[in-house]
Amino acid sequence: MADLYLDILILLDSALRLATPLVLAALAGLYAERSGIVDIGLEGKMLGAAFAAAAAAAVTGSAWMGLLTGVGASIALALLHGWVSIHQRGNQIVSGAAINIIVAGLAPTLANHWFHLNGQTPLLSGDARFQALIWPGVDAIGNLPVIGPLYAEVISGHNVVTYIAILSVPIAAWVLYRTRFGLRLRAAGENPEAVDTAGISVYGLRYRAMIINGVLCGLAGTALSTGLGAAFVRDMSAGRGFLALAAMIFGRWKPVPTLFACLLFGFVDALQGRLQGVELPLIGEIPFQFTIMLPYIFTVIILAGFVGRIAAPRASGIPYSKEG
């Protein structure tokens, strides 16, 4: 029994770790869509940030420099998407897809040019990676029954980006629903004319949303290459940007439900990791090619079956111009 409990805790621990980039990217998408910009470029920004963070961390030996660079790269990409979507009134799907494609090609190319490691960055270690933070009193509390292992395994022992991700959720909820900025941001995504006639700049709001979007995607990418992994690897985002988008939709564009959707996806991802090479009763061993598909199949089922009527921000994806 105790073994099973520990197993579950370890599963939850890795679920939280795996959900980190999802939570950050989903919130990034949420800010963008709530302001009226559809962002399918989460994937590309995450990948770009993962590369920039890993490269900078490898060169400087500091994970924090990696974080700064990753966030910077992601903000630049977000503003590019913003400029196309806001000022140029371009097609936001095309722009987002373009970012995904550019980064998928550019990152390994640059990595190869700089590091000659077949499109990877050097393996990070020590201070160049975000290390697990061990919470105070783990030794003392860890020995308590039930709560002890929970504290030691699940709550303590993540890297700083995971804690930032979890904190970002209540902050996002507070910003969106309790502040002037959030009120205006949501209005811009629903009825930009109302914002404009109230004398507020719709463009300004949307650019600010894209900067927040860039910061969050940057954190997500940094978590991938300097927290979860220890280097940038080609295509290492592996569709997580799209999973995040799905989680945001499943969470109905609301921060807290989106968090739970991400945790669910993270849990399924952790589960598939656990199932690899495990003999199951009746079925036997599932080939890893199938277990690895689980999170994606799960996403399709969730989106097709359980979401129901979607309540997207009404003006999302529609460029705003005064002449209407």
Partner: peptide, 19 residues
Amino acid sequence: HFTLVEPFTVLDNILLGFE
């Protein structure tokens, strides 16, 4: 054509821009 944000409450609509 009213410039109201439909999912908002009446109060939030009136507050918008004059918070």
